[in-house]
């Protein structure tokens, strides 16, 4: 009986560790905290769990409205969200902008857009380098 209990506790600990691997609360707060100083209101958050690298890209879509400013903020366990970036694509899945600046090898923490054409926009999140496979993204808006 003792062995059962010990083994169960051991396995539960492993399970607990596995579940806690991508806790994005802190990252979501970090993203959301950036909104207010820039005049944006919270709209939606996305958990970015790349499953330890087995997932190469996480894609979400959202309807952006004409005349509204949107900001897509990013955060992971790195101070400057190194490794994590987002590409914004239009309704035809044509890239509009990326938070990764190739020429400077720099990861920006957000993309902002003043939408002048209502439609479905796609947000493609990827990890380019490093092993930070857990992060968060928050969309904010202002008129």
């Amino acid at each position: 009986m003792k062995k059962i209990v010990i083994l169960s506790v051991f396995l539960m600990t492993i399970a607990s560790f596995a579940q806690a691997q991508c806790d994005v609360t802190e990252f979501t707060n970090k993203c959301a905290d950036r909104l207010k100083p820039l005049g944006f209101k919270y709209l939606k958050s996305y958990k970015l769990d790349f499953l330890n690298g087995s997932k190469k890209q996480i894609m979400y879509s959202y309807v952006f409205s004409n005349g509204t400013n949107y900001i897509v903020t990013l955060a992971n366990n790195q101070k400057d969200n190194k490794g994590l970036y987002v590409t914004l694509l239009d309704s035809e899945k044509k890239p509009v902008a990326s938070s990764y600046v190739e020429k400077d090898k720099k990861y920006l923490s957000a993309i902002s857009i003043k939408c002048s054409r209502t439609g479905i926009y796609y947000l493609a999140y990827e990890v380019k380098e490093g092993k930070e496979y857990c992060g968060s993204s928050v969309i904010g808006f202002k008129r």
Binding site: A97, S99, S109, I111, S112, I113, K114, C115, S116, R117
Partner: peptide, 18 residues
């Protein structure tokens, strides 16, 4: 479309207008 990195943000100004 026009894009410009300002501070820590990539700012997009959309060209198409509806």
């Amino acid at each position: 479309d026009k894009t410009e990195a300002k501070s820590e943000t990539m700012v997009v100004e959309q060209g198409d207008r509806e």
